[in-house]
Amino acid sequence: MDDAGPQGSSEQIWSVFEFARRYRLAKREENRLLMLYGPTASLRDLLANAQRHSFIPQSADS
Results as ranks from 00 to 15, higher is better:
residue 2 D to C: 06
residue 2 D to P: 15
residue 3 D to V: 11
residue 3 D to L: 13
residue 3 D to Q: 10
residue 4 A to T: 13
residue 4 A to C: 09
residue 4 A to Y: 12
residue 5 G to R: 10
residue 5 G to T: 10
residue 5 G to Q: 11
residue 6 P to G: 08
residue 6 P to C: 09
residue 6 P to V: 10
residue 6 P to Q: 09
residue 7 Q to P: 01
residue 8 G to C: 04
residue 8 G to R: 07
residue 8 G to A: 06
residue 8 G to H: 06
residue 8 G to F: 06
residue 9 S to L: 11
residue 9 S to W: 10
residue 10 S to N: 06
residue 11 E to M: 11
residue 11 E to W: 07
residue 11 E to Q: 13
residue 11 E to L: 10
residue 13 I to W: 00
residue 13 I to G: 01
residue 14 W to Y: 06
residue 15 S to E: 02
residue 16 V to C: 03
residue 17 F to R: 15
residue 19 F to R: 05
residue 19 F to H: 08
residue 19 F to W: 11
residue 19 F to G: 00
residue 19 F to V: 08
residue 20 A to V: 02
residue 20 A to G: 00
residue 20 A to Y: 00
residue 21 R to A: 08
residue 21 R to H: 08
residue 21 R to F: 08
residue 22 R to A: 12
residue 23 Y to V: 07
residue 23 Y to G: 01
residue 23 Y to H: 12
residue 23 Y to F: 14
residue 24 R to A: 07
residue 25 L to D: 04
residue 25 L to Y: 02
residue 26 A to V: 04
residue 26 A to W: 00
residue 26 A to I: 04
residue 26 A to F: 02
residue 27 K to H: 14
residue 27 K to Q: 15
residue 27 K to T: 15
residue 28 R to F: 06
residue 28 R to W: 05
residue 28 R to Y: 06
residue 30 E to W: 08
residue 30 E to V: 03
residue 30 E to K: 14
residue 30 E to A: 15
residue 31 N to D: 11
residue 32 R to P: 05
residue 32 R to G: 02
residue 33 L to P: 03
residue 33 L to M: 08
residue 34 L to T: 00
residue 35 M to S: 13
residue 36 L to R: 11
residue 36 L to T: 01
residue 36 L to S: 03
residue 36 L to D: 02
residue 36 L to K: 15
residue 37 Y to M: 06
residue 37 Y to W: 11
residue 37 Y to A: 05
residue 38 G to E: 07
residue 38 G to D: 05
residue 38 G to V: 05
residue 38 G to C: 08
residue 39 P to I: 01
residue 39 P to H: 00
residue 39 P to Q: 05
residue 39 P to Y: 04
residue 40 T to G: 04
residue 40 T to K: 10
residue 40 T to I: 08
residue 40 T to E: 13
residue 40 T to A: 01
residue 41 A to C: 01
residue 41 A to E: 00
residue 41 A to R: 02
residue 42 S to W: 01
residue 42 S to D: 03
residue 42 S to R: 09
residue 42 S to Q: 07
residue 42 S to G: 04
residue 42 S to N: 06
residue 42 S to K: 10
residue 43 L to E: 09
residue 43 L to S: 11
residue 44 R to Q: 13
residue 44 R to F: 11
residue 44 R to I: 06
residue 44 R to P: 06
residue 44 R to A: 14
residue 45 D to K: 13
residue 45 D to M: 06
residue 45 D to Q: 14
residue 45 D to A: 12
residue 46 L to H: 05
residue 46 L to R: 00
residue 47 L to A: 11
residue 47 L to M: 12
residue 48 A to M: 11
residue 48 A to S: 09
residue 48 A to T: 12
residue 48 A to L: 13
residue 48 A to F: 09
residue 48 A to C: 12
residue 49 N to Y: 02
residue 49 N to D: 15
residue 49 N to W: 04
residue 50 A to T: 03
residue 50 A to P: 01
residue 51 Q to G: 00
residue 51 Q to H: 05
residue 51 Q to M: 05
residue 51 Q to F: 01
residue 52 R to W: 07
residue 52 R to T: 04
residue 52 R to M: 05
residue 52 R to D: 00
residue 53 H to G: 07
residue 53 H to Y: 14
residue 53 H to E: 15
residue 54 S to D: 03
residue 54 S to G: 00
residue 55 F to K: 15
residue 56 I to D: 07
residue 57 P to I: 07
residue 57 P to M: 09
residue 57 P to S: 15
residue 58 Q to P: 00
residue 58 Q to L: 12
residue 58 Q to N: 10
residue 58 Q to Y: 07
residue 59 S to K: 07
residue 61 D to I: 10
residue 62 S to T: 13
